[in-house]
Every structure is written in structure tokens, then in C-alpha cells.
């Protein structure tokens, strides 16, 4: 039997998002909104937007969550990860005015994953807990680098300049951190 953790006491985000996707459940959406809106707004604000822009981008993100909820696939990952990718793409568009090149799984030249692996059902909540523990266990210098990378829109060379470290050191710390996280999740499927 699985031990009780914080995640077990919070509302089940997967169930909420699936309710929005399946039947446009407004109560479920409100619960999701109250959980994620402050986080998405803080994410946008940390990336250098003023309060007004962060608010607008947060609202765009949350409306996209409503509109695209039926495309969420719980076997592919956590709700927070799915919302992160939506926020990230809107942010690139707004702050950098660049397109974000992405692959297209319906493209005829796309090489699909082996059926066996693609069908492997992951318990998204268990994966998230495992990952969270692994991130919490990272040495401070490695965790700080991940946060700079995800929250400050800085290239690794910009991070190196800012921390006054050689670029090679930044890259090797990043590699060490990522290797640990990948290993922590390896038994959930072939992610190594």
C-alpha cells in the first residue's frame, strides 16, 4: 500500500482536468484555476513581465487550459507539466516574439515510439512525487541552475556569465542534475 503524501490530500488535478475536458465542468475548472492561476502568474512575473503583462499571460494560459482540456492525456505526464508547457509556449511568443519550433506527431516523417513503450501506463502522480523528491535532493548549486534555466529565460552562456562560472561548469552541473533526475524516473519506463 502506498504511503500518504501531500499529493494525496490535495484535490486530484487529473480528475479535475478530465472533467473539464469531458463535460466542460465549470466547478472543476474553478478548482484548477484557483490552484494554478497564482503559480502561472508568478512564473510569468519572474520572467520579467510587469504585473499587467503577467496577468494577461496567465489569463491566456488558463483560457487555453479550458479550450484544450480534452487533449490532455494523463498517461503522458502530470497536469502541472501540461500547464507548464502551455505557459512556456505563450511566454516565448510574447517575450521573444519567436516561434517555438516543435515536432508534429501527425507528420508522415515523424518516427513513432515502439508500441510497447508508448502503451506503458504510468501513474502520473507517482512519477511526479518521485521527481519532486529527486529535485529536492539535488545539491543547491544544481537546483539553482535548473531554476535559472526554467524561470529566467537565460541561455546557459548567459547563466555562466551571471554566476561568473565557466560555461563548461554550467553545462556539467546541468548534465549531473539531469542525469540524477532521469535515473530517479528510470524504473517507470525506459527514459534513460
Amino acid at each position: 500500500m502506498r504511503r500518504k503524501t501531500d499529493a494525496d490530500r490535495t484535490p486530484d488535478m487529473v480528475a479535475l482536468l478530465c472533467a473539464v475536458g469531458a463535460r466542460r465542468d465549470l466547478d472543476a475548472y474553478e478548482a484548477l484555476f484557483r490552484h494554478f492561476a497564482p503559480r502561472v502568474k508568478a512564473y510569468m512575473a519572474r520572467l520579467g513581465g510587469d504585473g499587467q503583462l503577467a496577468e494577461e499571460l496567465m489569463q491566456e494560459t488558463m483560457i487555453a487550459v479550458w479550450n484544450k482540456a480534452d487533449r490532455f492525456d494523463p498517461s503522458k505526464g502530470a497536469v502541472s507539466t501540461w500547464i507548464f508547457t502551455i505557459a512556456r509556449n505563450l511566454r516565448i511568443d510574447a517575450f521573444r516574439r519567436e516561434k517555438r519550433p516543435d515536432f508534429d506527431p501527425n507528420d508522415p516523417a515523424f518516427v513513432p515510439d515502439d508500441a510497447a513503450l508508448a502503451d506503458a501506463e504510468l501513474d502520473a502522480r507517482e512519477v511526479s512525487e518521485q521527481l519532486h523528491e529527486a529535485i529536492a535532493a539535488l545539491p543547491e548549486e544544481q537546483a539553482a541552475l535548473l531554476k535559472l534555466s526554467f524561470f529566467e529565460d537565460q541561455s546557459h552562456s548567459a547563466i555562466a556569465t551571471r554566476l561568473n562560472l565557466p560555461l563548461g561548469t554550467v553545462k556539467s552541473r546541468m548534465r549531473l542534475a539531469f542525469e540524477k533526475l532521469r535515473t530517479a524516473l528510470a524504473h517507470f519506463g525506459d527514459v534513460s
Binding site: F84, T85, L131, L185
Partner: peptide, 16 residues
Amino acid sequence: SVAESIGGDLLENISD
């Protein structure tokens, strides 16, 4: 997908 899950975890645990 592991790397994007890191983004999800950092977003989930952002303090606000």
C-alpha cells in the same frame, strides 16, 4: 518529457 516534468514540478512548487 523528463525535462518538461521538471518545469511542471518547479511550477507546482513556486511560492505565491
